[in-house]
Nucleic acid binder design. Sequence first.
DNA 1: TTGTACGCGTTATCAT
DNA 2: ATGATAACGCGTACAA
Lengths: 361, 361
Amino acid sequence: MTLGPKRFGKRHLYFLGSSFMQVKLKDLARMTGYSITTVSRALAGYSDVNEQTRQHIIETARQLGYVPNQAARQLRNQSSATLGMIIPAIERSFSNDFFSQLMQGIGDSASLYHYDVLISAQHPGEEEMAAYRRLVGGYRVDGMILARTRQHDPRIAYLKERGHPFAVSGRAAPGEVSDFPYIDVDSQAGIRMLVEHFLELNHRHIGLILPPPDVAYTGYRFEGYREALRSAGLAYRQEYIVHGDLTRVGGFDGAQRLLAQNPEITAIVACNDLMALGAMSAIQSAGLRVGEDVGVAGFDDVPAAEYAHPPLTTIHQPIYEIGQRLVRMVIDIIKGQPPAETQVVLPPVLIVRASSGLRRR
Amino acid sequence: MTLGPKRFGKRHLYFLGSSFMQVKLKDLARMTGYSITTVSRALAGYSDVNEQTRQHIIETARQLGYVPNQAARQLRNQSSATLGMIIPAIERSFSNDFFSQLMQGIGDSASLYHYDVLISAQHPGEEEMAAYRRLVGGYRVDGMILARTRQHDPRIAYLKERGHPFAVSGRAAPGEVSDFPYIDVDSQAGIRMLVEHFLELNHRHIGLILPPPDVAYTGYRFEGYREALRSAGLAYRQEYIVHGDLTRVGGFDGAQRLLAQNPEITAIVACNDLMALGAMSAIQSAGLRVGEDVGVAGFDDVPAAEYAHPPLTTIHQPIYEIGQRLVRMVIDIIKGQPPAETQVVLPPVLIVRASSGLRRR
DNA sequence: TTGTACGCGTTATCAT
DNA sequence: ATGATAACGCGTACAA
């Protein structure tokens, strides 16, 4: 703890440790001549304080720049007016539009409710669980928002076990019970729509780039793919499936493997837009034209999809709104009110752009 | 405060208020038979605790899932291991890649130092300053990171006055002293490079879409524009300048105005990529071809720039790394160490892509 | 090696 | 209408 100013010899440069003494209730009490109790209640707007006294106290507080110490408040009130979110710490260059959009929605909405948002970037694994324990068990946040659920997600188990308010972007994996508040897009139907779109365009050899197996929605998206082939009477071929790590690089690698081993493939469905953009690069590097030689589709409809080259056919997810609605859900739960909505599955919306190409002969 | 489980009649749905009793030092003391002090010091790794006692206490803590109460710790230690950042609350649809990238860099880096990041989304103005006071004055964060400085920025004045550790993405506006730790790209040189690029391509009528006047870097970018024209011996024309709000929409409107009133314009420099992308849309809506009829350039080199249609010529800013370096700076200051670097101006890097077109006849 | 006692700043209960 | 007091959970000076 640095307590006084430190300048390191550089003049006119503000490298101070915290130098201001905190103005506290005690100071206001001393200045105004009232007790700490009265000052506290005057500021809190209690009705049993003389109006003149209150004005005097408020004015003094303003002049001295009094700001309540949040740590003390939290300790006393057992609540922090803060929502927590743990996002995947990612190495440079994987720009992740999905989380950005979600966080924007969460941040904007939380501020309307006068909540702040505490972010911790962590790699999945033990460090990540430790971060959860620090935020949740350490009473730093009143509620949590999770995204990108995994199979047998230990974070959800932990939050359920503790009975801590939370809301989730995404359901549990197929076969597990989603007995918690969530918002998810019906991604099985979404992938089915994409595959059917390609089938209508006369494609018969459609590759699929799935997320890692432990991601909860992988199962749904895989099922959507098989379902579409089944209804069309087409055989499912194991070799048309690869997994990617949800980044551009993952999509690039996946598409390269698919095309190298199955040159007959004319369409690739990637399970998110980032991988689809990577797949487009791979196709172009192979000297093929996206939308003409090989059609591509993604999932999410992040802003970059619209501005891709060619623009990307995809499934739209209202990510920003999902963030807003998750905030409302978790705040309702925190306040002990029944949330207006609890388990939401949104219908997918197909956005057709140039990357999927025209009908093939 | 809800203290017990609440189920609202929906079975199997975890809508509980905080139901777990917090395990505290007192509990560990009771369980192990030692005093709170000894437990506290055993956990903190003090050397004057019997090794067996320590093992016993640590094991009990593990079994009971003890997590220190952060509010109590903060109150006691007067520090929060948290960095604060206030970002502009934005309406839906302005996806803002710059802040996303910066936050990723900040979040990833902060987690390496075991710091969390507290985000508050606020509209510039009184609410925003109130948020600063809440975080800084309320001792919720040990340090602040600011971005997009403004003229006579009240946030900086506040932080300087309080002597609170902070670091800034961006300098003060021209004519003001930047007597604080910051990292900025030399945007005057950056814009000059873009304009010179167009001059070399034989453009003579170059429009400029500036940010709002109160944004600190507006002055630098404007000066870069004039400087380039001056060295080329070209007259500066007031009507070639418009202001936009740094969003896609702002760029769209700005380009539309420029082209409507000055049909002779053959190139447009926008002061960030988002506005450049908007300008491209405006040009295309007017039935013109970007890069052929009208060249376009942006600033920032956000991921979307590369994937734009056509890809966007721009000035690269290493936004993610800037976020990382700002974290290091502010944490050094918090710890009372002289920061390794304090006032950094990065050289701009010109990235030429298709949107600026080929040489004109 | 371990325990007692106090304070961090706030709010709530209970008197007066 | 106002004030004294306790408590939230933790960490540390001091005592034993």
